[in-house]
């Protein structure tokens, strides 16, 4: 196994691990609030579920980048490419946007979702606005996913 491969693995691990952790924290924050609201009004389950699920997407963005890395270095085809160090570093760098922005945006999205859940508890008719606010945070995760994908796509092996 070459050094480059190790760096590529590190990249995939960071993308999946960090973005996933962020999502776990975010969903956790939103879920706690949601459970509290549902003790008062179990009928809000549908909306609460949607708002709780929204911070979960960063984990998937991380998974996607991790998966693209593994495909790129040929793990699934059974014969991993031999990568030079600089190629490995390129892949590692390409993973960083979604790893970093995924982690932080998921946490803050979780907080926003929790706030939105509070909003629908008091004013159910404002559901549209409540869903928009967490989606504002999501933008930055999508942007970083975009750049991660484009960077990966530009690396030639």
């Amino acid at each position: 196994m070459t050094d480059g491969i190790i760096l590529a693995y590190l990249g995939a691990a960071l993308a999946v691990g960090l973005a996933g952790s962020g999502s776990a924290i975010g969903v956790g924050i939103a879920g706690t609030t949601g459970a509290g609201i549902m003790t008062e009004d179990p009928g809000k389950f549908g909306l609460v579920l949607i708002l709780t699920a929204i911070p979960g997407t960063q984990g998937f963005y991380g998974l996607i980048v991790g998966f693209l890395v593994l495909t790129k270095i040929g793990i699934f085809s059974g014969s991993p490419e031999s990568l030079a160090i600089d190629q490995g570093l390129q892949i590692l760098n390409a993973c960083l946007p979604i790893a970093i922005a995924g982690f932080f945006s998921a946490i803050y999205q979780g907080k926003t979702s929790a706030g939105s859940i509070g909003l629908i508890a008091r004013r159910p008719e404002e559901a549209g606005k409540a869903i928009i606010l967490p989606a504002m945070v999501e933008t930055y995760a999508v942007l970083s996913l975009l750049i991660s994908i484009l960077m990966l796509n530009g690396i030639s092996i």
């Binding site: 998937f60 963005y61 998974l63 996607i64 998966f67 693209l68 699934f76 933008t139 999508v142 942007l143 996913l145 975009l146 994908i149």
Partner: peptide
């Protein structure tokens, strides 16, 4: 305008996650 890049990213995610499960 850049905000619409999410259309592209979401289009890609659906397909890739499905591929992961298929694999």
């Amino acid at each position: 305008v850049l905000s619409y890049s999410r259309l592209f990213a979401l289009s890609l995610t659906t397909g890739i996650i499905a591929e992961i499960f298929n694999m």
